[in-house]
């Protein structure tokens, strides 16, 4: 029996879809059977980030409404045999499915896969309710901005009301250099407000933009720090105990020299 994880945030643009794609890929790369479900009906993106948009024949709404079998709608990933995607419909809207139907679907998917990753749409209305209906656990994505943290707080409250206790926190797009200067919220500041367990921290990384545009999840990029962070998160989800990446600021040659000679700013 697998586990259903919903990736949510409240605010848009904080990286839910990127996170879904990379956690899915990360889990598949360590040999887990994973299916990613895009519940952002009408604004589907996950297929684009995964580079699978040209393979969509049937979608989530077709499955739920019985226009096709579940197997027909699942798209196999190019890179991993054990990774599947269930895309959202592009021409319908969020009301095309109900929370009950989502619950049923999750039960079915759980029987065949180790992990079901649900990419939740932004907002707290119908789409959010659909996405969380069948979930066992939740991952809340936020960025170090006051607006994103405020929305994450609201979402955690709503998750608790929906009996999804102890959601995990993922902080995205952190810039260690800005944090060091005091221009950006610190990880501790965010945890202080949200008071939930930290699952991982993803640094701001240009490689993410490049890989999303190419349809290659950054988790497969061995040279990228963000990719490493996502791979670590995937392993933490399986229960491994992996320490957080140290997000040291690249000091440059001058900084290193200064350190060598014992100058401390």
């Amino acid at each position: 029996m697998g586990e259903v994880l919903v990736i949510t945030s409240g605010k848009g643009g904080v990286g839910k879809t990127t996170t879904s794609a990379n956690i899915g890929t990360g889990l598949a790369s360590i040999g887990k059977k994973v299916v990613m479900v895009d519940t952002d009906i009408g604004l589907r993106n996950l297929d684009v980030v995964m580079g699978l948009e040209n393979r969509i024949v049937y979608d989530l709404v077709d499955v739920v409404q019985g226009n096709c079998r579940l197997k027909q709608a699942l798209i196999k990933d190019k890179r991993f045999e054990s990774l599947c995607l269930l895309p959202a419909a592009q021409t319908k809207d969020k009301s095309a499915i109900t929370p009950e139907q989502m619950k049923e679907l999750c039960v079915k998917l759980k029987q065949e896969f180790d992990y079901v990753i649900i990419d939740c749409p932004a907002g707290i209305e119908g789409g959010f309710k659909n996405a969380t209906a069948g979930a066992d656990k939740a991952i809340v994505v936020t960025t170090p901005e006051i607006s994103a943290v405020r929305d994450a707080d609201r979402i955690i409250g709503l998750l608790e009301a929906a009996e999804l206790r102890n959601p995990k926190l993922l902080i995205n797009r952190i810039r260690p250099s800005m944090v060091k200067k005091g221009d950006m919220m610190d990880i501790d500041d965010i945890i202080d407000i949200l008071a939930i367990d930290l699952l991982g921290v993803i640094p701001e990384d240009e490689a993410i933009v490049i890989s999303s545009n190419r349809g290659e999840p950054v988790a497969l990029d061995m040279n990228s720090q963000a990719g490493q962070a996502y791979r670590n998160i995937a392993r933490r989800i399986t229960g491994e105990d992996i320490p957080l990446l140290s997000l040291e600021v690249d000091e440059g040659i001058l900084g290193k020299l200064k350190k060598f000679f014992g100058f401390n700013e």
């Binding site: 405020r150 707080d153 609201r154 409250g157």
Partner: peptide, 25 residues
């Protein structure tokens, strides 16, 4: 006995004690 998060509210005819944080919103 828990934190109050954004969007949650209490209206009560009496006194209120919260064992936890009351977050913005």
């Amino acid at each position: 006995n828990r934190n109050m998060r954004s969007g949650q509210n209490i209206t009560f005819d009496g006194n209120v004690i919260v064992f936890g944080d009351v977050n913005p919103g």
